[in-house]
Amino acid sequence: MVEVDNHGDASDFDIPSQCNCTKIRRAARRMTRLYDVCIAESGVKITQYSILGYLKHRGPKTMLQLADLLAMDRATIGHNLRPLERDGFVTIEVSKTDRRARIVTVTEKGLACVDAGRPGWDRAQAEIDRLVGINEAEVLRSMADDVAERLGKQQSF
């Protein structure tokens, strides 16, 4: 629904109240803060914790595969991986089959980090479930995956 200002000009509406991106990013920032606080004892932020989780549950990935899984560009994934590599949570090696590709693998220290963060992550999940409802949280995750998948198929941007 387009809001009309006092002068009746329908082209001048309140963009933040209607913008899908603004609404999702606002919710994502608040959710990120919640998870970061809850997993602080692990020593990493939720983005890095997610990377470690992907590697734990899906095995070694190329930087490009990780970037795609997290909907990040290669520079951003590299920015998130550098401290994980520096602190010994992951290793990054040149692929044996494609010298251009870098393979990222979670280390024992990285697995321990995932384990250390799990109680906090569980608290964050429970808080989201409490605030929005268990079924709604499941719908939220499904919708987020669906939107990411659909937008990921767009080649025009």
Rank of each mutant, 00 (worst) to 15 (best):
V139A: 07
I46M: 11
L111E: 15
V114P: 04
R118H: 11
P60S: 14
V2A: 06
L140A: 13
T32K: 12
H57R: 14
V94N: 04
L55G: 01
T91W: 02
W121V: 03
D87L: 14
D87C: 02
P119V: 08
R100H: 13
G43L: 06
L70Y: 02
Q18T: 07
G78Y: 02
L52W: 06
N80G: 01
D98V: 06
S17G: 12
G53W: 07
L66Y: 05
A67L: 03
M72H: 03
P60Q: 09
V2W: 00
D68L: 12
S11W: 14
F157V: 11
R99C: 02
A27T: 10
E3G: 09
Q65V: 08
I24M: 14
K23D: 08
D14P: 01
V114G: 07
R74G: 00
Y35A: 07
V90G: 01
R26A: 15
V132H: 02
C21I: 13
L66C: 06
G43K: 05
G8I: 01
Y54N: 09
I92G: 10
R118S: 10
N20F: 11
A126E: 14
R141S: 11
R100V: 05
I128V: 15
N6L: 10
G88W: 07
A71G: 05
A144W: 05
N80M: 06
L70V: 11
M1C: 07
V37Y: 07
K56W: 08
H57W: 14
T76H: 06
R29M: 13
P83G: 09
I15C: 06
S95W: 03
F157G: 11
S50Q: 10
Q48P: 03
E85A: 15
P83I: 08
P16G: 04
D68T: 14
V90P: 03
L131K: 10
Y49D: 04
R141V: 08
A40I: 00
L81N: 04
A137K: 13
D73M: 02
P16Y: 08
V106N: 01
N20V: 08
F13T: 01
G43S: 07
R33Q: 05
S156V: 10
H79P: 01
A71N: 14
S95V: 06
R99S: 13
D68V: 12
N20A: 12
R30Y: 09
E108L: 11
D115S: 09
A40M: 02
H7V: 04
A28D: 09
L111P: 03
V104A: 12
W121Q: 09
I15W: 12
V4W: 04
D122L: 10
D14N: 15
L131E: 12
E149P: 01
A101N: 04
I77R: 01
A10P: 06
G152W: 08
R118K: 12
N135F: 05
H57Q: 13
C21Q: 09
L140N: 01
R25L: 15
V114H: 05
E108N: 11
A75E: 13
D14R: 10
E136N: 08
G133T: 03
F157H: 13
T107E: 08
I24A: 15
L140W: 09
Y54Q: 10
G78H: 05
E136V: 08
K23Y: 07
T22L: 04
Q65F: 00
Q65Y: 01
V37K: 13
P16M: 04
D36R: 02
R141W: 07
I92T: 15
V147W: 09
R86H: 15
L69S: 12
R150V: 04
